[in-house]
């Protein structure tokens, strides 16, 4: 039981950190990293909350997360392609338009 709580707290913290990073990040790549971190937190969350059956974690939750992992990497690949193209066209790597300010 206590491991469940440990992973639940970790997932919550990582999700919050990811949300913070998503807002704060300027570079699109960094936003993508934050988004992926949030995604992983959600996966851990789903698996911990779903509970366990005699044969390991809930198989429905596992299938859901497995699907999620594959979709996440496909979406990431598409986002990266979009980002590279945007940079080729405009020379920008952020949505604010001013790359240099800090």
């Amino acid at each position: 039981m206590s491991s469940t709580i440990v992973y639940l707290l970790a997932a919550s913290a990582v999700f919050g950190i990811g949300a913070y990073g998503l807002i704060v990040a300027d570079h699109l790549m960094r936003k993508l990293l934050a988004l992926n971190v949030m995604g992983s937190a959600v996966f851990v969350f789903i698996l911990t909350v779903a509970g366990v059956t005699p044969e390991g974690p809930d198989p429905v939750a596992q299938a859901l997360v497995l699907t999620g992992i594959v979709i996440a990497v496909a979406a990431t690949a598409f986002a990266l392609a979009l980002m590279v193209r945007m940079h080729e066209e405009t020379g920008l790597t952020s949505l604010t338009g001013d790359d240099d300010d800090d």
């Binding site: 990073g21 807002i23 952020s94």
Partner: peptide, 22 residues
Amino acid sequence: SPGRRRSFLALPVGVLSGALVA
């Protein structure tokens, strides 16, 4: 670029969303 936007929203949003998940 280490570019980072300053946002007053970021920290509260992060903390609150984490708390919400918990």
